[in-house]
Design a protein around this nucleic acid. Structure first.
Lengths: 142, 142
DNA sequence: ATCTTATCTATAGTAATGATAGATTTTTAA
DNA sequence: TTAAAAATCTATCATTACTATAGATAAGAT
């Protein structure tokens, strides 16, 4: 399950992807159009800016816009930014050979093996789907 | 992320899969060998029994054993039993055409489209990997 | 009988999630 | 230069989900 934070973030990003790429859109507008709590959306967009997926402008006619062209922004980056790592289990973190509390023998850990495989697959799907790809019918046959 | 409940459940299932399929193993033994809190494990195994993945026997020399041969038990069934649906978002539930609170136009919902694709992929991986498959090297090239 | 072990029901602590609030700063435009 | 618009910063709170423990009971083996 992705969190509501990621879901709201995705909706906001899709909304921005639909608009003229150079226009700044206010939090208020996104909140209204996509039915996302405004004060919550503030944090979400701020996080996406920190990850360099959005640019912002303060003041009248300010707001947010995509930092990159929509086809260069992957769904994976958005979810990773808002929900953290895509790993299905904490012991899969980058450190690699690291041993987690309860599984002593990393190499032979069945749980780790299967979850690692799931992670690879999930990353493949999410990293290779951009804001533009996501609404294509071809997605079903990817 | 899968929860600790699912992780513990997977470890317990792998442990049982390693043993003689007809022998009942006590919660105590699994708890000791796999370092899983015993009272927590009780609930987990009870759930897996309700889902007909385990059989149990009360009393001396009692315990749990797999209800099916290990190659007939998928990782997906185990996780689904313990963590609920595999869906990455609640609006993807079986009801299909159902409309979720915030997304009015289901058919054109980009978020739903992409998450639905992720679900399909996740289900494919987890439903087609059994307790026996999970430790095979071939998994990496699946 | 007694010990072993699962089963049932309840509950409690903790962490993560979802959401709101106030005060501040920057920018635009009148 | 002033007022409005909008993001930014920091804090906090409510709720839910997760993790775990506990007591009492029932069933089976020796």
């Amino acid at each position: 399950m992705i969190t509501k934070k990621a879901k709201y973030g995705l909706k906001a990003m899709f909304y921005l992807a639909q608009t003229d790429a150079l226009t700044y859109i206010s939090i208020q507008e996104i909140s209204n159009k996509e039915h996302i709590p405004k004060r919550f959306l503030e944090h979400i967009l701020a996080d996406l800016k920190k990850s360099h997926l959005l640019k912002s402008k303060i003041g009248t006619h300010g707001g947010y816009r995509l930092a990159l062209s929509p086809d260069k922004i992957s769904i994976g980056e958005i979810i990773r930014t808002l929900d953290g790592l895509l790993e299905p289990e904490s012991c899969l973190k980058q450190e690699g050979a690291e041993i987690c509390e309860d599984c002593q023998h990393v190499a032979q850990c069945n749980v780790k093996n299967i979850l690692n495989h799931l992670l690879t697959t999930t990353e493949y799907v999410l990293n290779n789907t951009s804001l533009v790809d996501a609404n294509k019918k071809s997605l079903t046959s990817m």
